[in-house]
Write a protein that binds this DNA or RNA. Sequence first.
DNA 1: CGATTCTTTGAAAACAGTCAATCTGTGTGG
DNA 2: CCACACAGATTGACTGTTTTCAAAGAATCG
Lengths: 194, 194
Amino acid sequence: MYELLRAYLNKITSSTVSDEEFQFFEAAYSEKKVKKKQFLLHEGSICRYMAFIAKGAMRQYTIDDKGVEHIARFGIEEWWMSDRESFTSLTPSRYNIEAIEDCDLLVATNEKLILLREQSPLFVKMGVILDEKSYIASQKRLDVTISYTAEEKVIYMMENHPQFMQRFPQSMLASYLGLTPETLSRVRKQLLQK
Amino acid sequence: MYELLRAYLNKITSSTVSDEEFQFFEAAYSEKKVKKKQFLLHEGSICRYMAFIAKGAMRQYTIDDKGVEHIARFGIEEWWMSDRESFTSLTPSRYNIEAIEDCDLLVATNEKLILLREQSPLFVKMGVILDEKSYIASQKRLDVTISYTAEEKVIYMMENHPQFMQRFPQSMLASYLGLTPETLSRVRKQLLQK
DNA sequence: CGATTCTTTGAAAACAGTCAATCTGTGTGG
DNA sequence: CCACACAGATTGACTGTTTTCAAAGAATCG
């Protein structure tokens, strides 16, 4: 499991982490399994873990006043899951993080990461790169959400996140795109006929 | 002008920056004025500056295939403007950054900031805090955009960004919210009648 | 196999968008 | 300083897309 993290670290930082430096990662992260339909985080509690998905699929979502779920993000292999606000500032989270499939995770607490940040320059580098990637991704998603029609959203999803289309139920994909499940179903049908 | 940045730095990091450390900031940032309707960044060119708005108002936007403008963000006093992707990776930007009012800016190039990052721990701290804030803000905006009706969006805007409502033209506010100017106008009228 | 959950389909209603005309306010040049 | 021009905002009528509600069909799980 740690080898997956190691390979990911090398890939994302375009470096080769030494055995010595990677030992700090092994000390910081521990293995955790979360079964399908179980939660890594519940709304109202503090997010204790920053989790690296070695295997499986998860979703992070809120529930609004009307009881409607809104999916903030999906995660699959090689993605990170956490409510960063809650994680770093130790405040109660408004998000739920749920396993959609059985998951193998590598998790670290905030204290461990503070230590790791001092021990490993590559960890710091990874953090900067990830921040930037997630910022760019959320800008793009905002753009899509604001300006695309239902059909354009679905096409965008199929082209840019085909993995998601296969692994998450339609109703969740619809919520992610800001559509109703019925609309998503109809748009898919139309697109298949072309 | 530098005093504004200094006060901001103290506020955001909950610290008091020493004269010594702040000298590095003064060396890194230089003053720049941008007049109303002029651009800090044009689509297709590389974003050379990370700008702190000391005075004025700006917007950052893209133009899509159909020629429609989409506003990614607004900025007023004490906000930062830049296309971070272009700025750090020196790639051509797809954004425009335009002054909506005459602006007084403090700008730094990427090289200067790399240096500043080594000189000033407070600058690094500020960077982490800003990343987090902007990430949280964009998650929230995504939520609003996906799940709110036109009326809810306008109410959200009035409650959370009243400064924007006053300083930016309706058409731009509409674009920011993913509405047409007509719809924004109608919703405002309805709300005033209540 | 039965029960539950998810997806699809249909019809009607609500919502926001489009197009076009009018109104308002601001700034500019005569 | 006034009058005109221009851009932005409002209003109305209409259109089209998406949602809502309800029911039937398919898939999944114990």
